[in-house]
Design a protein around this nucleic acid. Structure first.
Lengths: 207, 207
DNA sequence: CTAACATTCAAACGATCGTTTGACCCCGGA
DNA sequence: TCCGGGGTCAAACGATCGTTTGAATGTTAG
């Protein structure tokens, strides 16, 4: 009776609210007092459960990225297991898991916006954390792209992957704001969105 | 180089330093005390010359965007004056002025990173300010794209323009960090970069 | 029941935030 | 010469920041 959502623990409520507020106001812009107030928990709960604001931020990433990158690597492995696969297949393996996550979980849509923020922030600590924990995923995909584009020299490939990654991150972050025709369901809308992104990125990589 | 020369007024030094620190730490992350210390001016100078931190942020944008968008509109008009012009021409009119600015002025490179931050921030006040003052430029370009892509319905076009704008903003923001071959000059490097971006974006829009 | 531990709570810590104040300096026009 | 206003300055304002404390409460095992 103490809370409207007693099924969620204090830790989980903090993570969920922090995700939303970090997406909306940035890491420096959202204060722990705003987070704990919205989560209906005591201010000290953050430092008790996570140790510091910095660690809370990392935990917000870890909770989603572990699952997301597992799905991405699985999708990539599935694609590469086939005798033949195209650039579009690899791009789909990268994009679709992010779209799925932004759909199925309530905070998933907020998290892709957090990701876009992390992309824009050039904060050294945060970049190192992401690179240390999830850098191997991006390297695997880069290798897959390199195999499919043998005529492109390495420097040029990295160039384009950088643009593609930035474009995809921004595009996915803005998904929640793009109006859709009312006669198509949410799922088919995202389905179309994924196909558009894949074709767009593939055209850019092959140009 | 001559960062603390007395030939620059207090106002100009504040604007220059604020641009750099906003690019590095964000609008909420860079404090007025950091700005005024780096600019070697008194803390109160910001509120004296600009009124508030919010107004300082707007002035940082205004100083660069006025010139940037003037160049963009001039380039667009020049392109459209020709009897025939392609998608690549219009994209070039949008991209090249930004690249020029990021090259010729010392703080220009920092400013495109500030722009990328503004893109990631969904702050209501900042978006309204930018939309009110520079929205007509984007509308002019959107109309030019629509004329060149008559088979694309409006909804799909806005979709792709959103992706393209995000990709270009991000790519330009990261220009300073992309390694270039040492045997090509800075100018020719940017020249190649512009061509790559244009071809990449055109392929995505036509896909 | 009691002891031991886990969690929550109100309150306060020192640091830093944006902003304001009022004295002070410099300098061109009476 | 004096005056007055634009500019700079150190200092302080109240608010808010992340973090810490110690007591109160809840939970679990012996």
């Amino acid at each position: 009776m103490r809370s409207a959502t007693p099924s969620f623990s204090t830790k989980e409520r903090i993570l969920g609210v922090a995700e939303t507020l970090f997406a909306r106001h940035g890491f420096a812009g959202a204060s722990l007092r705003q987070v704990t107030a919205a989560a209906k928990v005591n201010l000290a709960a953050v430092n008790y459960h996570f140790g510091s604001k910095e660690s809370l931020i990392e935990e917000v990433f870890r909770r989603r990225l572990d699952q997301l990158n597992r799905h991405r690597l699985a999708a990539l492995a599935s694609v590469q297991a086939r005798s033949e696969h195209t650039l579009e297949d690899v791009l789909d393996a990268f994009i679709r898991p992010a779209l799925e996550q932004s759909m199925d979980s309530a905070g998933g849509a907020a998290f892709v916006r957090v990701l876009a923020r992390a992309y824009a922030e050039h904060d050294e600590r945060l970049r190192k954390f992401l690179s240390d924990n999830y850098g191997h995923v991006l390297r695997d995909f880069a290798a897959a792209f390199a195999r499919l584009l043998p005529n492109l020299d390495k420097e040029e490939l990295y160039w384009r992957l950088d643009i593609v990654a930035g474009a995809l991150t921004y595009a996915m972050a803005d998904f929640g704001m793009i109006k859709r025709k009312s006669d198509v369901s949410e799922r088919s809308h995202r389905e179309q969105a994924a196909q558009h992104l894949v074709r767009f990125a593939a055209a850019g990589l092959r140009a």
